[in-house]
Write a protein that binds this DNA or RNA. Structure first.
Lengths: 118, 118
DNA sequence: CCGAGACATCGACATCTGTCAATATCGACA
DNA sequence: TGTCGATATTGACAGATGTCGATGTCTCGG
């Protein structure tokens, strides 16, 4: 299916100017909030951090499951949230699934907050 | 009561290294998440943005109320969340209450995400 | 001292969210 | 083909969250 017509939340945010520059429109806020919600959970923060700091920048779900005392479906659920928000890329290789942090996603979010535009 | 022994969420986060440097400890994630939750709401994002971009860097609650089609208690609730997380400072002057963005708070958060440490 | 206005708190409610157990799906391999 | 192991999906449930109306607490003017 065509993916070019659907933007992930993180993509719809990359264009926004920093929070402190001008009042956010109601519309912009509604688009940004889901993205922030995606990282507003301790488990997802750790998942993001684990994947980002992992060797080769990617991590297998099997490794991630072991890092938590949570059920496998729960981890799967959190990974889905991160993936659908555009923060994690997903690739299936054989039986395993690997996630990696989408390049620039966190940086865009940081810029939005800090206003430290490049 | 003494406030010197209690750190706001934002203060407990300022010390952390960026997400992508090393895996977040479970403990660190539990401290960071509430702060991110505080901005994971469209109304609070707009409030933050409104205050930050307001003249003199501060805004009266009366102005903020008018910017939303929400009840006054609801706005008050959101402001409380932002204040208790350490993102907004609160000052009462006469009958009015003024909020301003706590210096560095957003920048600390941005650093945490983006890793663009100074 | 009393009334009015600005803001906070309380109590109630519907909705959202994180979690699990059970089950489905998919690919490798015998 | 049939089984097994790795992930995803589903359904259910408790607890968290956003919202409101009613009410409380200040502070200022008269």
């Amino acid at each position: 299916m065509s993916k070019s017509l659907e933007l992930t939340p993180v993509e719809t945010v990359a264009c926004c100017s920093p929070l402190t520059r001008e009042p956010l429109t109601s519309d912009a806020a509604e688009r940004i909030a889901p993205l922030v919600k995606a990282i507003a959970d301790p488990v997802r923060l750790r998942l993001l951090s684990l994947v980002a700091s992992h060797a080769d920048g990617e991590a297998c779900v099997c490794d991630l499951n072991d890092a938590f005392e949570l059920s496998q479906p729960t981890i799967s659920h959190h990974l889905k949230v991160l993936h659908e928000s555009g923060l994690l890329d997903r690739e299936k290789r054989g039986v395993w699934v690997y996630y990696r942090v989408r390049a620039g996603a966190l940086a865009d979010l940081a810029t939005l907050l800090g206003g430290v535009s490049a």
